[in-house]
């Protein structure tokens, strides 16, 4: 059996409300909240980035797995906001958590799919028998240009998953990936904010790939949507994952626990992984979980998980997504937000 032996998530405490952003641009807050189906988003502290978020999420994963960090043979961090253009994020993480130095570390980038990609690579290494444990992380401090629709959603957070073969809490039964060259969203080297192709990001990009991967995964697993207790899809806003679920035949109830976007926003590479962590926080043995990520460019990774008895033992060993989503929030005004997001030009 190969699957998740430990998981952890991290969300910063800072928030900004959709109203606060709308006020800045003279936009209609109610229309935006209705359209995007989200009311606020997480904002990283000035001292937080993909690396620190990954460290705190992975710390939770190690606490839950209760393993010796030295036994982790590979670490992958998927993000589109790695703090360095050249220098890996994972090296800081391994030295902070006592993993390595005998460890394989790599940085993943595939827009919002980099996190599930890291999970997939970690899973594959363990499945091949190459190593006992591998760590896959999706984390981002997402960028959205001021005034752009993305500004209401681009948020910060991440989740980490340790793959292994013993004391598995969520077995990975099937995977499937679906990829094509689709220029819906990108950021060129040296550019600060990403660009997107507006409504082209919908049907030809997000839905085509999520539904493509999802349908193939259902066929491969010979399972029907009704067999699943939970489902989670990449959450660029509140509406898209609901619509993707509907197109694949899932109900709103199945999406309920992973649909954390209304209060979290879009944590890019951390989006569906954090949704998965929120589901594991409430999952029961025997539950089947359906997950499909999406990364612009574009591609989707699909996973079918089966929760085991182990989940009961590990759930409470680290902070839960819901408690981080609901507690200790510090709301920012737009000025503070621009400072947190390094949007002010300063003398260096």
């Amino acid at each position: 059996m190969v699957g998740i032996v430990g998981y952890g998530a991290y969300l910063p405490r800072y928030r900004i409300k959709a109203e606060t952003i709308a006020r800045q641009w003279g936009a209609d807050a109610e229309a935006i909240k209705r359209g995007l189906q989200l009311t606020e988003k997480t904002v990283p502290g000035q001292d937080e980035d993909t690396i620190t978020i990954s460290v705190e999420a992975a710390r939770g994963a190690i606490q839950r797995a209760q393993i010796d960090p030295q036994e982790i043979g590979a670490v992958y961090i998927g993000s589109e906001s790695h703090p360095y253009a050249v220098k890996p994020s994972g090296t800081v993480l391994i030295d902070a958590l006592g993993i390595g130095p005998h460890v394989h570390v790599a940085t993943n980038e595939f827009a919002c799919k980099a996190g599930s990609e890291a999970m997939y690579v970690a899973y594959s290494h363990v499945k091949s028998g190459e190593m006992k444990y591998a760590l896959g992380i999706g984390a981002d401090t997402s960028q959205g240009a001021p005034g752009d629709a993305l500004e209401y959603s681009a948020s910060a957070g991440g989740a980490a998953f340790i793959m292994g073969t013993e004391r598995v809490a969520a077995e990975i039964l099937f995977t499937h990936s679906y990829t094509s060259d689709t220029p819906d969203f990108w950021r060129r080297e040296g550019e600060f904010y990403p660009r997107h192709a507006g409504r082209f990001t919908g049907d030809p990009a997000y839905f085509k790939h999520i539904v493509g991967a999802g349908q193939a995964l259902l066929e491969k697993s010979k399972l029907a949507p009704k067999d699943f207790t939970h489902a989670v899809f990449h959450m660029p806003n509140g509406k898209f994952p609901q619509e993707a679920g509907r197109r694949l035949g899932f109900t709103k109830q199945q999406l309920e626990f992973g649909w954390i976007v209304p209060l979290m926003g879009n944590t890019y590479s951390g989006s569906s992984p954090t949704g998965l962590a929120a589901i594991l926080d409430v999952a029961n043995p025997g539950d089947l979980i359906f997950m499909v990520s999406f990364g612009s460019g574009a591609g989707s990774d699909g996973f079918v998980y089966r929760v085991t008895e182990e989940i009961k033992a590990i759930k409470d060993r680290a902070p839960k997504v819901r408690s981080m989503l609901d507690n200790g929030k510090i709301y920012l005004d737009y000025g503070q937000y621009t400072k947190h997001r390094h949007k002010i030009k300063l003398n260096e």
């Binding site: 001292d47 690396i51 620190t52 460290v55 705190e56 710390r59 703090p83 800081v92 902070a96 260096e348």
Partner: peptide
């Protein structure tokens, strides 16, 4: 104590992490 970025060595230098 948690893990955070403490300072940056200017715009182009290394990022410096540690405990807060």
């Amino acid at each position: 104590l948690v893990f955070r970025k403490i300072q940056e060595d200017g715009k182009a230098g290394i990022l410096c992490y540690g405990y807060k």
